[in-house]
Simulated assay, not measured.
Amino acid sequence: MNETIKNAMEELEDWLSDPSELGKKPAKIEYTNAFTDEDGINCLIFKYKKNVLGKWLLGIVSESGTFTEMREYNQKTEIDDAKRILKMLKNYWREMAKNQ
Rank of each mutant, 00 (worst) to 15 (best):
G59T: 04
E10W: 05
N42I: 09
C43T: 15
A34H: 12
T66V: 12
E10H: 09
P26M: 15
T66I: 13
N99D: 07
L22T: 01
L12V: 14
K55W: 01
W56M: 02
L53N: 07
N99G: 07
Q75V: 10
K98W: 06
C43M: 10
I29R: 08
A97F: 11
N2C: 08
I5R: 05
R84N: 14
G23H: 14
E30Y: 09
I41M: 14
I29T: 06
T36Q: 06
S17F: 06
K87N: 06
L89A: 02
E10N: 12
M88F: 15
L89T: 00
G59F: 00
G23E: 05
T68Q: 03
D80R: 12
K98H: 10
A27N: 06
A27C: 13
N7C: 05
L22E: 02
T4K: 13
K25N: 05
M9R: 13
D14V: 10
A97Q: 10
K6A: 12
D14K: 15
M96L: 10
F67K: 13
N33M: 05
T36S: 08
K50M: 09
N91K: 11
L53W: 11
A82D: 02
L58I: 06
R71T: 02
K24Y: 08
W56F: 04
V61Q: 03
I60E: 00
G65A: 09
V52F: 11
D39V: 05
K98N: 11
N99F: 09
T36H: 06
E72C: 00
Y92A: 11
Q100Y: 07
L44Y: 15
I79D: 00
I41R: 10
F35V: 10
T4A: 12
A34M: 08
T4G: 07
L22V: 03
I60G: 00
W15S: 06
E63V: 05
Y31V: 03
I85M: 11
K90A: 07
Q100T: 04
K6P: 00
M9W: 00
P19H: 10
E3L: 15
V61F: 01
L12K: 07
I29A: 02
A27E: 09
I29Y: 05
M96R: 08
K6L: 13
G54F: 01
